[in-house]
Design a protein around this nucleic acid. Structure first.
Length: 531
RNA sequence: GCGCCUGUAGCUCAGUCGGAUAGAGCACUCGCCUUCUAAGCGAGUUGUCGCAGGUUCGAUUCCUGCCAGGCGCGCCA
């Protein structure tokens, strides 16, 4: 019996070679041999292979039966040429080629500023989009605008009340920005206050909606997060699109009527209870939009619909999955839901809860004002989304290596400085100066080996939907580079003449800078040339 | 009550389909700049991987139960 796949891993301990496999241990039982014997047989066969003979310098059996593989130096260093040739494309691959992904994230109500919870997704969602694209997927980034329902009416009523100088409704919106917008609308459209109450509320609602949406778009733009589609919930009800969706679900046999309401039998697919689509008063429940929106995404050509939701919405996972199943899709493939845990922010050792602007929690814009785009994005992306996280403003503002984003950016800037100096000294570097035979230092081997991992990291991050892996990888590269820098002098000292080794090392530096820049680009974080 | 997430060093957290001696950063101690950016590097110290079972050659990782914390369970959106 052969296993489905053979795992090849990078050992933590460098003494265990460049790569290692535990295949012999896995096969030992069914082969009826002890693992080391199995390993010996495998190695004998591998050694007969001409490609292996050429590119591998050692195959060893270690421990209980691991096979440790040490690569030939020259073939290992080929990655340097590859990086220089492919440039910004290095690391990009095709594991997700041919897959069309709809990536929906943030999806805030257009009734106020984006806050901290949205910000996590603004960073992670954007990074995931970049990572998926790099892995070959066709990605459509979508922001779903919840522009329908009671919240919008309350928003309109709050604005109108503020414009009239009245106190806003109890369950309305109370942030400071409400007053600002109300004044802006009043100035632009003094006539709105002369309309009868419900028309007036509608007018304020629509004007406020337009202003808030524009504001969200502006803020996200400065944050470096861009969308392909801003999808209006209201548009799902235009041209009877919802009716069409209802027919689709009906055809699959999961729609029924009870007590004057129209239901979707989501319990057929693991939901706790069935969900109402059309309420007994004839209006649409929010869930109706969910079903139509999913169907819209699929009909517009996406194979996989990824939803990025806050932890307070995790109760929606089953019903969303059930929608896919009710539409006749495979809920294990066509729909994925990622849950982002809460983000807390502390400053001076205390949690920041109130934003004067939003009236509730701190906004994306306020966070950026405090720590800058790069630090905010990097920190938010650096952790898996299923862990709650705490952002420490003071730490993120500090320009020390307590702050991982600086550690990583500094490595890039440092390399750029070395390369500038190399150019001044007339030391050539680039694809013609790789000289693998000269890069024999342990630090050089380490660095080359780490650079070679990048494509695997990108593919893994894409397949697992975990962009934080890219951030952790850059930190490793930065660390390995700094150690190389400390031990391996690149430029000639004093009166020394520059030799081939300087060129080879400068070339390695160039390749490292490229990989760091590519990684940071996947996170939407800048790679400064000077700091 | 039911469901989801989390529990790893003093602190903040990584840990790939189950692999070898469980890792970073910070903090603490001590070294390293008359020459490439010291925002850096090196050395030292730090662990009942929440607890208890199970699966197996092997479990921080998978399964079950329990403990602790966070969140969610509307014909609201």
């Amino acid at each position: 019996m052969l296993p489905d796949s053979i795992t090849l891993e990078r050992p933590k301990n460098r003494d265990h070679g460049d790569y290692a496999t535990s295949i012999a241990l896995a096969l030992a039982k069914s082969a009826g041999l002890n693992p080391r014997e199995v390993a010996e047989i495998i190695i004998k066969h591998l050694e007969a292979d001409s490609f292996i003979k050429q590119s591998v310098s050692a195959l060893d059996i270690a421990g209980p039966g691991f096979i440790n593989i040490t690569l030939d130096r020259a073939s290992q260093a080929q990655v340097i040429s590859q990086i220089l040739e492919q440039g910004a494309k290095f690391g990009h691959g095709e594991v997700l080629k041919g897959v069309s992904v709809n990536l929906e994230f943030i999806s805030a109500n257009p009734t106020g500023p984006l806050h901290l919870g949205h910000t996590r997704w603004a960073a992670v969602g954007d990074a995931l989009g970049r990572v998926l694209s790099a892995a070959g997927a066709k990605v459509s980034r979508e922001f779903y605008i919840n522009d329908r329902g009671n919240q919008m009416e309350l928003f309109g009523a709050s604005l109108r009340a503020a414009a009239l100088g009245q106190s806003v409704p109890e369950d309305g919106y109370h942030g400071e920005y409400i007053g600002d917008i109300a004044q802006e609308i009043k100035k632009e459209h003094p006539d709105f206050l002369k309309l009868d109450e419900s028309t007036s509320i509608g007018a304020f609602r629509d004007a406020g909606y337009a202003l808030q949406l524009k504001d969200q778009q502006r803020v996200l733009d400065t944050f470096g997060t861009h969308f392909d589609t801003w999808f209006s919930e209201l548009s799902l009800y235009e041209n009877n699109f919802f009716g069409h969706c209802q027919d689709t679900l009906k055809a699959q046999g999961h729609v029924y009527e009870q007590e004057g309401a129209i239901w979707l039998r989501t319990t057929d697919f693991g939901d706790d209870k069935d969900r109402v689509m059309i309420k007994s008063d004839g209006t649409f429940a929010y869930f109706a939009s969910d079903t139509a929106y999913y169907i819209s995404k699929r009909e517009r050509g996406s194979d996989i619909c990824i939803y990025m939701l806050g932890a307070d919405h995790h109760g929606y996972v089953n019903r969303l999955k059930a929608i896919a199943a009710c539409a006749g899709d495979n809920p294990e493939y066509n729909i994925e839901i990622l849950i982002g845990q809460m983000v807390k922010i502390i400053e001076n050792g205390e949690e920041l809860k109130l934003s004067k602007r939003a009236g509730t929690i701190i906004t994306l814009e306020e966070l950026v004002e405090k720590v800058g785009v790069d630090a905010a994005r990097y920190t938010l992306i650096r952790y898996p989304t299923d862990t709650p996280m705490v952002m420490d403003v003071d730490l993120l503002r500090s320009r020390t290596n307590e702050n991982p984003v600086y550690y990583v950016q500094y490595a890039h800037a440092r390399i750029c400085a070395v390369l500038r100096n190399a150019e001044e000294l007339g030391i050539p570097y680039g694809a013609d100066y790789v000289h693998p035979e000269l890069l024999t230092h342990e630090r050089e081997r380490e660095l080359i080996g780490a650079l070679a991992e990048f494509p695997r990291i990108v593919a893994g991050a894409a397949e697992l939907r975990e962009p934080h892996r890219v951030a952790r990888y850059i930190e490793e590269i930065a660390g390995v580079y700094h150690r190389f820098y400390a031990d391996c002098r690149v430029l000639p000292l004093g009166e020394e003449k520059a030799g081939a080794l300087s060129s080879a090392r400068a070339t390695l530096c160039k390749a490292t800078a490229q990989v760091i820049a590519n990684s940071l680009a996947l996170l939407g974080v800048s790679a400064p040339e000077r700091m």
